[in-house]
Design a protein around this nucleic acid. Sequence first.
DNA 1: AACTTCACG
DNA 2: ACGTACGTGAAGTTC
Length: 875
Amino acid sequence: MSSEKILLLDGNSLAYRAFFALPLLTNEHGIHTNAVYGFTLMLQKIMEEENPTHMLVAFDAGKTTFRHSTFGEYKGGRQKTPPELSEQFPYVRKLIDAYGIKRYELEMFEADDIIGTLCKQAEEKGQQVIVVSGDKDLTQLATENTTVYITRKGITDIEKYTPSHVEEKYGLSPLQIIDMKGLMGDASDNIPGVPGVGEKTAIKLLKEHGSVENLYQALDTVSGAKLKEKLVANEDQAKMSKILATIETNAPIEVSVDDLTYSGPNMEEVTSVWKELSFKTLLEKSEYVTDEQTRTEIKFEVLENVNQSILKDTMVVHLEMYGEQYHTSELLGIALYDGEKSYFIPGSMAFQSKAFCEWLEDENKVKYLVDSKAVQAVSKKNNVSLHGADFDLLLAAYIVNPSISSEDVATMAKEFGYFDVLTDENVYGKGAKKATPELDKLGEHASRKAQAVWKLKPTLEEKLHENEQYSLYKELELPLASILGTMESEGVKVEAKVLKEMGVDLEQKLLTIEKDIYELAGEEFNINSPKQLGVILFEKIGLTPLKKTKTGYSTAADVLEKLESEHEVISHILNYRQLGKLQSTYIEGLMKEIHENDQKIHTRYQQALTSTGRLSSINPNLQNIPVRLEEGRKIRKAFVPSKPDWVMFAADYSQIELRVLAHMCEDEKLVEAFNHDMDIHTKTAMDVFHVEKEDVTSDMRRAAKAVNFGIVYGISDYGLSQNLNITRKEAATFIEQYLNSFPGVKGYMDDIVREAKQKGYVTTILKRRRYLPEITSSNFNLRSFAERTAMNTPIQGSAADIIKKAMIDMAKRLEEEKMQAKMLLQVHDELIFEAPKEEIERLEKIVPEVMESAIKLIVPLKVEYAYGPSWYDTK
DNA sequence: AACTTCACG
DNA sequence: ACGTACGTGAAGTTC
């Protein structure tokens, strides 16, 4: 017997199995990938275990097969292949090609028949044959030389059918499997068999008689009158069923076993398909990708300090910091790369180098960076201003696809097909084991990052151009990074004393409320534990639970508010929660973040995180400082100017999201409302409730306001009903009335969802993109969510575009006017400045002017502003 | 690390 | 029939 081993796979069946075994995964371009992924895992495993010399994947060619001429309803009544699966077949084929595996399909024949035919040919050649499928019918092919692998639950779990295993399982020979199918039929293929005969009876009959034909010859000896009757009545059908179940082993195929030699995968092509489909786990695990040996070696020179001679006109500069908190963390070293040579300067000495600082400041020296905002912030701390930032890897990757959202160079690089860099976690370790590596390793890591930036620049820039996003990236995000870095580094002064006094006061109040609650509850417990609180309220006191969470009773504020009249303790709990939040998050939390040296808080803006284009703020979050309730709003009294005789100045866009909506949908009434600067909620109430302005009650206005919010969020009757505490039906009526009153809005909502389905993504005014793979999902929830996102993202994202542009214009204007005023914070639709009193008059003119003209819409933008001795007073 | 709650736009 | 309003971050509890 030859040492050749042939692997014959049933492509359709395995892809089906994979599809139903795995949840519906998608990559960022909206392609479903679960079937391809599962197929890949099976393929990897089986090839590793079997090491075949020959391979083929067979596919079904079309709907009609030769079996249909025997039985028209063959495979009738089958559910249509879900579109989520059919769209994956091209990728399965592509992957097979990349592996260098032959594939074949033949008109009028099924994959089974191709496999059966090749199976016999291979056996004749003396090859060992392995057939892999998810379909048990294939077990009829098992012989001494052929083993049939059938997938079990999951994807990589297989059952191996040799003739003896078939015997063991059914008490039949492999060929008798066909007879068995003939008698019992097969619901999935719509093979009728003999009605009333199932697996048990079929096996029993075949054990006695051997085959369908023998059975019918000896029908008299069959015991059981009813059974005999059924067999007689369905003789033709049984014989036909057997024919249908028989795999053709003599199909007119045009390939022969000799064509199927397999010489191993082309891993470059395989990984490129993996990249396309975002198979991150496979890419990470792949030796090809992560093995030290396959990673190209890099050279870098360690320098004591920066000398003039290495500083070129164009370079990558990368600051390697310990962790992401660059405001406080240690600068471990600086990597420089000029396209040929890599340098690493350990420690923070580089900023001592006059040559380096001057080079950073020189706008004619072109810099490529990983994160230009971080470099700007750190530079500013060293009294240096970064100029000439020309490429920012983090921002470029984010604009191409905001869902990437990793700050790690290796993770970003991998997305774009570059693998010669390690993850920070790999180099530093994680959790308790996290530590700075030795100099060599650190230098190599930083240098690899620097080189990755250089190599990735053309790839990303090409992608940006292709998507028409280059100017969004280069003229909006990149200059903004520098401004944000400066704002972060500038920081905002916070009076610890003010917070502390509030804290003492709160402490007292909390203790009192705590005592009251314990008394009313009749026992002491942890009020901060929803679980314990739930037991007290809903079991001990016996209130009615109105809502449940995954883990138990919901004790969220909206639930408690509905129970307020039921028991006295509720209002105390709500009060306790409110004050507790202030104490822990805002008093204690913020005090921890005040820097010793300058009494300031330096937040970090995440410029490459949100999927809509907004910024986010962390360590601490300064975008959610209380304002709605007076007690909380007092926190803002601690936010003060950094210099005596300066004031805080805040300006915010009024109704920016609804104005953006008006701009995009061009609804006549909405546009007119803004052109006349009407109160938009009142106007909405007038149109929805068909009343005159004078007759709009406060409740009507409140409802209209909620509807407007709903419109911006991607309206749903349920959401609105929750918000307004009305029934879903009433909410649905509101929405209908709204959309009838503003037909342009309805048109926009319909169009944007249709567009998202067609393109797979939505865009903002400045061509920011968000991919929405789930918009074509057959899962109602996933699809609905994607549809609401499709409606909301262009609105929220365009508003983000506008304020970002305003920030750039504002920074420029302040510089041109040589003003001292500083932009300190951005809170989505507002900008907060500090300025000397003398500049206020000019700011009152400049800020609204600049913000209102940031981006021209078909409706005016409106800015309101206020100033005072603290952030609290800017109302 | 997941869940719940709540602060903001 | 399905069950959710969009986008965030931080704190505290529980597993």
